[in-house]
Structure formats: C-alpha cells, structure tokens
Design a protein around this nucleic acid. Structure first.
Length: 369
DNA sequence: ATTGCCGGGCT
DNA sequence: AGCCCGGCAAT
C-alpha cells in the first residue's frame, strides 16, 4: 500500500492516479484483514471446549434421538472401512478442493486457511496428543494396563480419531460419556454410548489409529464433498475438537468451515478446472496467486497479463495485480467492467502508458481477454 | 456516462 | 505501416 502510493508518478495526474491506486489497494487488502481477524475469531471459538459442552448439556430429547441416528450412521461407516476412508483425504491438496462450490453463499471472508493450519499445527500429534489429553483427563487407566489390553479382549472407542482402548466396558462407557458425549451422568446416554465403542480381541483392530490425525482440512473436505454433511460431522475430525463436540454440536462448526471453504476454494476450483472458460479465471486467479501457489500458467488471461507485468515496472505491476476485480464468484461471461484494459488501469490522463492498440482504439494487447 | 474496439480514413 | 478517430455495442 504505502509502497504503491509512494511510487514516483509521472506528470500531472497524481491526484487522480493516487485515488485510483488507493481504491484498488483497499480492495486488495481489506479481505486479508478480515480474513485474519475472522480466522482468529474462529480459532478462539473452536478451541473453547466449554462452550461446546454447554451446548451438549442443553440438548433436547429430539436432538438426542437424532444424535443416536447419526451416531449409528457414523459407526456404520467407521466400522465398515475405517482404513478405506482415510486415504482419499490425505491425497487431497487444498487447491483441489471442490466441495460445496457455488452452492454456498459467500461469507465475505476467507479465514479457512489460517484456521485450518493453525488447528492442524496445534493438534498435529493427533493420536498422541489425543492420548495425552485422555490420560490427562482420565488418569484412571495405567499405561501398563493399556498395553496389556492390546493382547486380549478390550473395548475400543470408535469415536473418530480417538481409538481409546479400555479393558472394561464400564470404563469405556464412562470414557465415551465424559469425553465424547460430554455429559456426566445422563441416564439416556446409556444406549448411546454403545454406538461409540466396540469389543476387540486383538491389537489389529484399533480403529482409532487407523485413521490417524486427519488434518482438519481433509476432514472438512471429505465430509463437505457429500451434500449430506450432517451425516459425517464427527467422523474424521481432529481429535482435539472431536473430543469435545458431540454429533449435534459440529453443525455450527461445519457452517463456519463450509463458509470459509467456499471462500477459499471456489477460486481455485474455477481456475484449475480443465476446459473451463478462460474468462472465468482472471479475477480469482489473481487473488489465488497471492494466497496460494497455484501456477499462473493455468489461467490464460493471468499468464498473459503476468508475462507482460514481468517486463514492466513495479508500479505497473501493483496496478495490474491489485486491479483484479473484487468479485468472489465467477460469471461465465466476464463482464466488460471487470476487464482491466489500459484505459481503465492507467486512465485517460496517462494515455501514453497505454499499449499501442489501446491508443489506437484497437483491441487491447496488453490485457487481452 | 463510460468503456472497448471495429471500421475506416489520413499521412 | 503507423496513427487517429467516428461510431457502435455493452455496461
């Protein structure tokens, strides 16, 4: 911003040009500012276990029933193929997200990245950290007993990414009730707990570690790709969050994430999509280049523009890059107002900086469509 | 009103 | 070929 404004400017049109630059830069930087603050907010909310628990305590009977249904579904999916479910997510790169897409309304911020990475970094140890947490919260089980339990009949917690093993059914129920369901002595949680653990006879049935530390991005990912994200909210969650959020609680979390997902991913998706009209790629790709490392070569418009920009001065570069339209979504036909031609970029007053074609009122060569 | 640029004229 | 502009369509 300041660098742009302090660029030496030719001739007489400083006032207007500065105004132009300032406007453009505001577009370029405000979202980032929101983005970081949003991320902080979400991070704060999500790392706040107490609020989640409060929600759990106040669940209505209907929601409990729904929880049971969903728990059964989750359990089914988990017990069927816990290993099969994890590979697809790890291969997914952020830039390949194609969930939710345009179905989600724009939220005006894109805090997803910061949130995701922060949470992943914080909880990256995954099962280890989870175990540590469990041990910390529930020190009733000695380590020796645990290791011993691997070789004989044990009860394995099926809660996503938990994998807690206990030798007693009661202990397992208590573990689930306290840690996952988040209620202390609720009577009706008796049946519900049965959904969340299973009896195992050997150590090769550890369902928890079989899906180790799914990063939150991938979990959001996989569940987001299904239109019924409600079905798999707890499933494949980060341990830290899954421990504290029961099936009904994540809905707000999902909302938060999907909103940010939309912001974060839809531009990438648009840019990467093979065969997509190149007119779609200008605006999003320019933003993407600043936030992620998607190659510019995927977008014809951007690559041409960038190639030209490479040859030009820094001030010119800041002009053109930051001049990308602030629109988040992509219309199939790029509106005329969205195209940044020499006339628009430099203004009539700096016509001598236009490309030749523009000066001649021909089709712009510098910023071709 | 502004913008992008086709078509055409002038040198 | 280089340059310029009237005029039109799109916004």
């Amino acid at each position: 911003m300041t660098s742009v404004l302090s660029q030496p400017r030719p001739r007489t049109t400083q006032m207007q040009t500065q105004g132009h630059d300032e406007r453009v830069c505001m577009h370029g930087e405000d979202p980032d500012a929101d983005f970081s603050s949003d991320a902080k907010i979400h991070q704060t909310n999500l790392s706040f276990p107490h609020s989640s628990r409060l929600d759990l305590h106040h669940r209505s009977p209907e929601s409990v029933e729904m929880d049971e249904i969903m728990a059964a579904m989750v359990l089914t999916s988990l017990s069927c193929s816990p290993v099969v479910q994890s590979p697809p997510q790890k291969d997914l790169l952020p830039g390949e997200m194609e969930c939710c897409g345009g179905d989600l309304s724009d939220s005006g911020s894109s805090g997803y990245w910061s949130w995701d990475r922060g949470s992943v970094r914080d909880r990256s140890p995954g099962p280890l950290a989870d175990e540590g947490l469990l041990m910390e919260l529930e020190p009733a089980e000695p380590e020796g007993q645990r290791s011993k339990s691997l070789s004989r009949g044990t009860y394995s917690c099926l809660w996503p990414a938990c994998g807690k093993l206990l030798t007693s059914r009661v202990g397992m129920k208590r573990h689930i009730r306290f840690l996952h369901l988040g209620r202390g002595g609720s009577e009706q949680s008796h049946r519900e707990e049965d959904f969340y653990y299973t009896e195992v006879s050997s150590d090769d049935e550890e369902t928890g570690p079989s899906s180790p530390t799914p990063s939150f991005s991938s979990s959001v990912w996989s569940s987001c790709s299904s239109t019924q994200s409600q079905n798999t909210p707890g499933h494949q969650e980060t341990p830290g969050s899954s421990n504290l959020l029961s099936q009904s609680a994540p809905s707000s979390v999902w909302q938060i994430h999907t909103e940010h997902l939309y912001q974060s991913w839809s531009p990438v998706q648009v840019t990467v999509a093979p065969g997509s009209p190149s007119i779609c790629s200008w605006a999003p790709a320019a933003e993407v280049q600043q936030k992620s490392q998607v190659p510019a070569s995927r977008s014809r418009s951007v690559s041409v523009g960038e190639q030209w920009l490479e040859k030009n001065s820094a001030s010119t570069r800041s002009h053109a890059v930051s001049a990308s339209p602030s629109r988040g979504h992509c219309s199939f036909r790029k509106g005329r107002g969205e195209a940044k031609k020499c006339r628009k970029v430099y203004g009539v007053e700096r016509r001598d900086q236009w490309c030749t074609a523009c000066r001649w009122k021909k089709a712009c060569q510098r910023f071709p469509d």
